[in-house]
Design a protein around this nucleic acid. Structure first.
Length: 108
DNA sequence: AGGTTGACATTAT
DNA sequence: CATAATGCCAACC
């Protein structure tokens, strides 16, 4: 149920991330109108861990670094998923992040 | 009803 | 240039 709608919106945006693309917490937060609540996006994704429909592995920090991989089941599960989508990830860092970056405010 | 937390981002030292 | 501290907002306890 939509307590505030923030969580659900984060889920929807994350679900709409196209295959082989990634976005940042700040970008999603900004799209939701809360540019300063980037941390909330991470919190929302924390619950998305049980939602198979939420590709949280496609969401990284603005640096393109897999900061949230520690919250995943496996140790390098997040990296493997990204690599499986054609994204080059080295040392938890996405290569050519700008090239794979998907901006919801721009695409949606 | 209030205090703490948090998968970030930005600025300051 | 690298590290530290602060700000933001909403959810969780």
């Amino acid at each position: 149920m939509a307590s505030t709608g923030f969580f659900e919106k984060v889920y929807e945006v994350t679900k709409q991330i196209p295959y082989g693309r990634v976005t940042s917490y700040g970008a999603i937060a900004r799209y939701l109108g809360s540019s300063g609540s980037a941390r909330m996006v991470g919190w929302a994704l924390n619950g998305s861990n049980e939602n198979p429909d939420i590709p949280a592995h496609r969401v990284v920090n603005r640096n393109g670094m897999l900061t949230g991989k520690h919250h995943f089941q496996g140790t390098n599960l997040m990296q493997q998923l990204l690599e499986s989508e054609g994204i080059e990830v080295i040392e938890n860092q996405i290569q050519n992040f700008e090239k794979f970056f998907w901006d919801p405010t721009k695409e949606l």
